[in-house]
Amino acid sequence: MKVTLTDQEDITVVEVVGDIDSKTAPEFERSARQATDQNEKIAIDLTAVEFMSSAGLRVLLMVYRNIKAQNGKVVLAGVSEDIQDVMSTTGFINFFTIVGTTGEALSILKQS
């Protein structure tokens, strides 16, 4: 798994490539924390993530809680149907705005 952070004006885009499980979740968490320290608007691009375990979902929820405490906003982009299914069944999906592409995520965040 690889995480890349890119700033676009006041938005930080977190791009993840590879599976997020309990082995890689700590690294994802570190990068996500760095992103939430930088900005209150976060787009997380999960287009290249095929599998996300419980630990990964918990990092997403941590980001949400962190951003919400700062009155910011987080948008997820490119979440696979399988992962959305798990998120829906386990209740995680209720916390997130989910869109198809990073472009859509950016336009939502710019308006907010």
């Binding site: 299914d85 209740g91 995680f92």
Partner: peptide, 20 residues
């Protein structure tokens, strides 16, 4: 009994049901 039992997430699924 959990759709996500194969991912080991039955606890979250049941708690989500209770919450709903």
């Amino acid at each position: 009994y959990a759709a996500t039992g194969k991912f080991g997430m039955q606890v979250d699924e049941l708690k989500t049901l209770v919450k709903e």
